[in-house]
Design a protein around this nucleic acid. Structure first.
Length: 763
DNA sequence: CTGTCGGCGTTTTTT
DNA sequence: ACGCCGACAG
């Protein structure tokens, strides 16, 4: 019995056994791609005698990295801990800490996350008196440039339109500000290692031979900068194994380039390609549906997933009037699944934009369905937590102006706007960091003694922390900050519900830091003695900064709500896709106003997003849409009627468990008009509303089977109807010609019932 | 200098 | 509807 090779199918085994040289594994959803990477590493180590620390695996999320390492340890034992397994960004951070000197950084440099970057850009925009650009616009340009692997000098002429030029100017300022603070942003975690490898002979010599094998997961989502990094790290050996699925490329907007996977064999001649097409996750129905959507993508590598399983539950379509009703229906569908034996945590509700979560949340709460919103940073984005983190970063790196500005007056110590402005002025004039300028200001004649004293107090605080914090365990460092700054005491004094919660959050941060210390204590010593070990608190902060979407474990006993992007890589027994409407999925913004080629590419990405969502489901997939959707809240500025998503139109109706085409048509009479929201050729649509007195709250919907023939506007006598509870029946009569009319239906199971259905009035 | 109120913009996705 | 920012009063 061979634990490495036996559990694999032929294609997986081929990928694992592949010798040296480039390998591209095209791995469809649920085809076991993580398994291939893990087993390949195990094989390299166990059979081919490669030392684990000569193997580098990169993934996109910390969760994926963690899972990979865990499975590797299961297969290989503790020595697997010595393999390099991390996200691109975490790898970049580790690289830079090790090459801190060459990079001109302190080994405990702070990492500025998205919010920090935005704050910095905002400040720079104000200082430069630029108001033509929003901070977001500037940041997304900078981000795009960095993802493309460019330096300010390399920005192409095409980007030098007036606002591009302004953004470029700001980028230069931004880089100077980062440099002064000794800080690094997200993009730098990739860019700076890349530049070092490209430009610094000594660094290249140290790294290009380091990894015998490089394996990349989710390769379809790599940016050009990441791709270049991989090529450098692989050195000349070309032992690169990339695993990905062009159908699941959903990060184009972040600079990911599907071309990386589509053209991989061009950059690495002699690439072996292995396709993994057997799916172990989803039912046949779900795969067929997903395939129907993805096969219409304009640009993709042809492949088709198959499964050895037969059948499965039909797809479910939920049609609602608006987002509130959609929430209610989804809540009901979730409860039904749960009653049917699916654990709460095996159910997920997925949506395109975060804003959709509100209505869903409200409905789930009302229905007493336990849920969690899986969104990354929420905890570490809390203001009080960020304050504490800013103190910690400042303690490690007092030059970090951004952090200093954040906390000078937090908790309030009477250092106000004017004092801070003066400090900034002085610092700018002297070319020093704010912290360095603090001392000079303490004797400034412009300030009242009170303000001087406050500044001196603050400086002592930071200097004291600075002296201690590097030598402390993470937990002790957090404790020192909480005690020294009075952050927690101030909150406790307030005594409001909110301040109590905030204080608790700070204690939770402390607990997290202690847990981090414990985990570090358990980890085996670094394989590599030359690796400098930065202070624990610095690594804890790094972990916080890089912790991302969906990284936390999904808590037991709760339904997971998340964006489609966050759902990548996860799987659930039952999945509900909310907002299957034009404008929402596909989302309108990306493809509405651009050049045709751009639109097609953006629309393809929306299609892939839909595909990713559908393929998360193992057994039950429900698709939900609302016929109108309010944006900007109740009575808010806009209110949109929606069309069903074009992706629904790509689905064969049989997948909804309906009689296939050619089933006996409605006996006679005028034909029932298609309900709004129904698609041409799609007979199976749930509609509201039966009044509660006629059917209990759980049965407030009927499923119509209606004839495909167009025309007519009245409810048809004799038309076939299906009700969620009562099953099939025939329409006996109706009160009106379409619109909101009550219909009497003779059900085959329970006899006549009156139910209300709402149809579109004939045009 | 601090706290509150009212007006405004927001909504694509995130390491 | 909500969060953020600027204006104003204490």
């Amino acid at each position: 019995m061979d634990p490495i090779l036996d559990p694999l199918n032929d294609a997986q085994r081929a990928a694992v056994l592949h010798g040296d040289g480039p390998l591209l594994v095209l791995a469809g959803a649920g085809s076991g791609k993580t398994r291939v990477i893990v087993h390949r590493v195990a094989h390299l180590v166990r059979v081919r005698g490669i030392a684990p620390w000569h193997v580098l695996c990169v993934t996109f999320t910390n969760k994926a990295a963690g899972e990979m390492k865990e499975r590797l340890v299961e297969l290989l034992g503790p020595e697997a801990e010595q393999a390099w397994v991390s996200t691109f960004h975490a790898f970049g951070a580790r690289f830079l800490r090790r090459e801190a000197q060459a990079a001109g950084l302190s080994p405990s440099f702070p990492i500025y996350d998205d919010g920090d970057q935005l704050g910095l850009v905002k400040r720079l925009l104000a200082e430069a008196h630029v108001d033509a650009l929003t901070p977001r616009e500037v940041l997304s340009r900078i981000d795009r440039w960095k993802n493309a692997g460019l330096s300010p000098g390399e920005v192409r002429a095409g980007d030098r339109d007036p606002s591009g030029q302004a953004a470029l100017e700001l980028w230069r300022r931004y880089e100077r500000a980062l440099g002064r603070a000794g800080a690094v942003d997200f993009g730098d975690l990739l860019m700076r290692p890349l530049k070092l490898l490209e430009l610094d002979e000594a660094v290249r010599a140290r790294w290009s031979g380091r990894f015998r094998h490089v394996l990349v997961d989710e390769f379809q989502d790599t940016s050009p900068a990441q791709y270049r990094l991989v090529r450098h790290l692989a050195g000349g050996r070309g032992n690169v194994c990339v695993v990905g699925d062009d159908d699941q490329a959903i990060y184009r907007w972040r600079g990911a380039d599907v071309a990386n996977i589509l053209d991989f064999d061009r950059d690495f001649p002699g690439t072996t390609v292995v396709k993994l097409e057997q799916n172990y996750r989803s039912s046949r129905q779900i795969l067929d549906a997903a395939h129907a959507v993805i096969e219409k993508a304009a640009r993709r590598r042809e492949k088709r997933l198959w499964t050895a399983r037969e059948g499965g539950a039909p797809l479910q379509l939920l049609v609602s009037e608006d987002e509130h009703q959609e929430g209610e229906r989804i809540a009901r569908a979730v409860q039904a699944a749960h009653r049917g034996g699916v654990a709460w945590e095996e159910i997920a509700v997925l949506y395109r934009v975060n804003a959709q979560s509100r209505a869903l949340e409200a409905a789930l709460r009302a229905a007493r369905v336990p849920y969690v919103i899986v969104r990354g940073q929420s905890f570490y984005e809390r203001a009080e937590v960020k304050d504490a983190a800013a103190y910690l970063r400042l303690a490690l790196e007092p030059r970090s102006d951004l952090d200093l500005l954040r906390v000078v007056n937090r908790p309030s110590r009477k250092i106000g706007e004017r004092t801070v402005a003066l400090l900034q002025e002085r610092a700018a004039a002297a070319g020093l960091s704010l912290f360095e300028s603090l001392a000079g200001l303490e004797s400034a004649a412009e300030l009242k003694p009170q303000a001087r004293k406050a500044l001196a107090g603050f400086r002592d605080l930071v200097a004291g922390l600075h002296a201690r914090v590097g030598a402390l365990a993470a937990g002790e460092a957090v404790r020192a900050v909480l005690d020294g700054t009075g952050l927690i005491d101030k909150l406790r004094l307030e005594g409001t519900d909110e301040s109590v919660e905030r204080a608790e959050n700070l204690l939770e941060l402390l607990a997290a830091a202690r847990e981090f210390d414990e985990a570090q204590g358990r980890a085996p010593p670094a394989a590599d003695p030359e690796e400098p070990v930065p202070p624990p608190i610095s690594r804890f902060l790094e972990q916080i900064a890089l912790l991302g979407e969906a990284d936390g474990p999904t808590p037991e006993g709760r339904v997971a709500l998340m964006t489609l992007h966050a759902a990548k890589g996860l799987e659930f027994d039952a999945v509900i896709l909310a907002g299957m409407e034009e404008g929402t999925l596909p989302h309108q913004r990306p493809w509405h106003d651009d050049a045709p080629a751009e639109r097609a590419a953006a629309l393809d990405e929306e299609r892939r997003l839909c595909y990713v969502g559908m393929t998360r489901a193992r057994h039950q997939l429900s698709l939900s849409l609302a016929r109108r959707r309010m944006s900007y809240g109740e009575g808010g500025p806009t209110f949109r009627s929606t069309e069903p998503s074009r992706f629904l139109g790509d689905l064969p109706q049989e997948l909804f468990g309906l009689p296939p085409r050619g089933a006996p048509p409605a006996p006679r009479g005028p034909v029932i008009r298609r309900p709004p929201g129904a698609l041409p050729g799609d007979p199976h649509v749930e509609l509201d509303d039966a009044p509660p007195e006629e059917a209990g709250p759980a049965e407030r919907s009927i499923d119509w089977s209606f004839d495909q023939t167009e025309g007519g506007g009245a409810f048809a006598r004799g038309a076939r109807v299906r009700h969620a509870q009562f099953g099939e029946g025939l329409v006996r009569g109706s009160d009106g010609p379409g619109g909101d009319a009550k219909v009497t239906v003779a059900f085959f199971s329970v006899g006549e019932k009156r139910v209300l259905a709402r149809f579109l009035r004939p045009a």
